[in-house]
Design a protein around this nucleic acid. Sequence first.
DNA 1: TCAATTTGACGTATATTTGCGTCCAAATAA
DNA 2: TTATTTGGACGCAAATATACGTCAAATTGA
Lengths: 110, 110
Amino acid sequence: MVQSKTDLFDEELKTQAAWFKVLAHPARLKILQYLSEANSCITGDLSEELPLGRTTVNQHIKELKEAGLIQGHIEGVRTKYCLNPEKITEVKSIIEQFLSGLNVGDYECK
Amino acid sequence: MVQSKTDLFDEELKTQAAWFKVLAHPARLKILQYLSEANSCITGDLSEELPLGRTTVNQHIKELKEAGLIQGHIEGVRTKYCLNPEKITEVKSIIEQFLSGLNVGDYECK
DNA sequence: TCAATTTGACGTATATTTGCGTCCAAATAA
DNA sequence: TTATTTGGACGCAAATATACGTCAAATTGA
C-alpha cells in the first residue's frame, strides 16, 4: 500500500516543505525572476522567455497563482501578471525561518 | 567563453531549483532539523523520529547524503549521521541569492 | 457579423517521486 | 561456529509532476 504520508508530519514542516516545492522547478523560478526584473506586470506570452510550450508555461503560472506568489489581471483579451509582494515577503520569511534553524555555527560532530 | 550568458543563467536556475527540490519534502527537513538540534552525529535509527518506515527514511537519508548535506560514518554495525556544515552554508547562500533577487521593496504593478 | 487573437480548461502520455517489502553483506553476540 | 542486529541495494506499485495537444470562451478589429 503506497500512500502519501505527508499529513503525518507537523504543520510547520509541511508548510515549509510545500513552499520549497513550489520553488523546485527552474521554469517557476524563471517566471518569478522575470516578473521581478520587469518590475511590473507583463502582458501575454511569458512562454517566449522559456524553453517550453505555451500551455506548459501556463501550467507553471497557474501553480504560482494558486500558491499566491503572482497575480493575474485581465485586460481585454490579454492578461497581465505581477508578483504579489506580500506573499513573496511571507515566503522569504518562512524559508529563512527554516534555514536559520539549521544552526551550524557551532556544529560539532561527536 | 565557452557558454553564452543565457546558458550560464539557465544553469544557475537549474542549480537553485535543484536545491529547492532537495528540501521539498517534510521528511528531509525533519532529518536536517533533527541532526541540527542534536548538535551532533546521531547513531542509528532515524526512522523512529519519523512517521515512515525504515527503508523510506533511508531513501531520504540517501538523497540528503548524495546532495552532500549530511555525512555518514560507519561505526561497527551502526552508522552515525551528521550535518555537513560547509554544504549547509553553501545551500543557504544559494537560496538566499535567489530570494534576494526577488526585490519587492519598490515593486510596482503597472 | 465574422475571423483572428489570447488564454484558460481539460485530457493524456511520460517521467519522476514516494513508500515500502525483500534480500544480502558486515559486524557483533552467543 | 551460528544467530542476531544493522543498514544498504534493489525492485515494485501508487502517487504526483511535467509537458503538451486540443478545444472553447472572451475580446477585438475588419
